[in-house]
Lab assay of single mutants.
Amino acid sequence: SEHYTFDGEEQAIRFMRDMEAKNLKYELQIHNGKYIIQVD
């Protein structure tokens, strides 16, 4: 699995939509205002 970190919500949402379009599962965590997305 890989981790991707985003500072902004818009970037994170765009990335998650992209993952959904590719049928990839992901998990979102928010730490200290950063959006951390783990992709299986």
Rank of each mutant, 00 (worst) to 15 (best):
S1A: 12
S1F: 13
S1C: 14
S1Y: 13
S1R: 13
S1N: 11
S1H: 12
S1L: 12
E2H: 14
E2Y: 15
E2I: 15
E2P: 10
E2A: 13
E2L: 14
E2S: 13
E2V: 14
E2K: 14
H3Y: 15
H3N: 10
H3W: 15
H3E: 11
H3K: 13
Y4P: 02
Y4D: 01
Y4Q: 03
Y4E: 02
Y4H: 08
Y4W: 11
Y4V: 05
T5F: 11
T5G: 03
T5L: 09
T5P: 02
F6D: 00
F6R: 00
F6V: 02
F6A: 01
F6E: 01
F6H: 00
D7F: 10
D7W: 10
D7V: 07
D7H: 07
D7S: 09
D7E: 10
D7C: 12
D7T: 08
G8M: 13
G8V: 14
G8T: 15
G8I: 14
E9H: 09
E9G: 03
E9S: 06
E9N: 04
E9V: 11
E9F: 12
E10R: 05
E10Q: 08
E10C: 13
E10N: 05
E10H: 05
E10S: 07
E10V: 06
E10P: 05
E10A: 10
E10M: 07
E10K: 05
Q11T: 06
Q11R: 05
A12L: 05
A12T: 02
A12E: 00
A12M: 05
I13H: 09
I13Y: 12
I13T: 09
I13L: 13
R14Q: 13
R14C: 14
R14K: 12
R14A: 14
R14G: 07
R14T: 08
R14Y: 05
R14M: 12
F15G: 00
F15D: 00
F15Q: 01
F15I: 02
F15W: 04
F15R: 01
M16N: 00
M16S: 02
M16T: 02
M16L: 08
R17Y: 07
R17I: 08
R17L: 12
R17C: 11
R17F: 07
R17V: 06
R17W: 07
D18E: 14
D18M: 13
D18Q: 12
D18V: 10
M19R: 02
M19V: 06
M19N: 03
M19L: 15
M19Y: 03
M19E: 02
M19W: 03
M19C: 15
M19F: 04
M19T: 03
E20L: 07
E20N: 06
E20I: 08
E20D: 13
E20W: 06
E20S: 06
E20R: 06
A21T: 08
A21R: 10
A21E: 10
A21W: 07
A21M: 11
A21I: 08
A21Y: 09
K22V: 05
K22D: 04
K22L: 13
K22M: 12
N23H: 10
N23D: 07
N23I: 03
N23T: 04
N23Q: 10
N23R: 08
L24C: 09
L24I: 14
L24A: 06
L24Y: 09
L24S: 04
L24K: 09
L24D: 01
L24V: 12
L24M: 11
K25V: 08
K25F: 08
K25R: 11
K25S: 09
K25W: 09
Y26P: 05
Y26R: 00
Y26E: 00
Y26W: 08
Y26A: 10
E27D: 09
E27M: 12
E27Y: 13
E27R: 13
E27C: 14
E27K: 13
E27V: 14
E27L: 12
E27Q: 13
E27W: 12
L28N: 01
L28Y: 09
L28T: 04
Q29G: 04
Q29I: 14
Q29S: 12
Q29M: 12
Q29L: 13
Q29D: 05
Q29V: 13
Q29E: 09
I30W: 05
I30E: 04
I30Y: 10
I30M: 08
I30A: 03
I30L: 07
I30P: 02
I30N: 03
I30G: 01
I30Q: 05
H31K: 13
H31R: 13
H31T: 11
H31Y: 11
H31W: 11
H31E: 11
H31F: 12
N32S: 06
N32W: 05
N32T: 03
N32P: 02
N32I: 04
N32C: 12
G33F: 03
G33E: 04
G33K: 04
G33V: 01
G33A: 03
G33T: 03
G33I: 01
K34P: 00
K34E: 04
K34I: 11
K34G: 02
K34N: 04
K34W: 09
K34L: 11
Y35D: 00
Y35W: 14
Y35P: 00
Y35M: 02
Y35I: 05
Y35G: 00
Y35C: 01
I36M: 07
I36K: 04
I36F: 10
I36N: 04
I36E: 05
I36R: 04
I37M: 02
I37V: 12
I37H: 00
I37R: 00
Q38L: 14
Q38A: 12
Q38Y: 15
Q38I: 15
V39C: 03
V39W: 05
V39S: 03
V39E: 02
D40K: 14
D40Q: 14
D40F: 15
D40S: 13
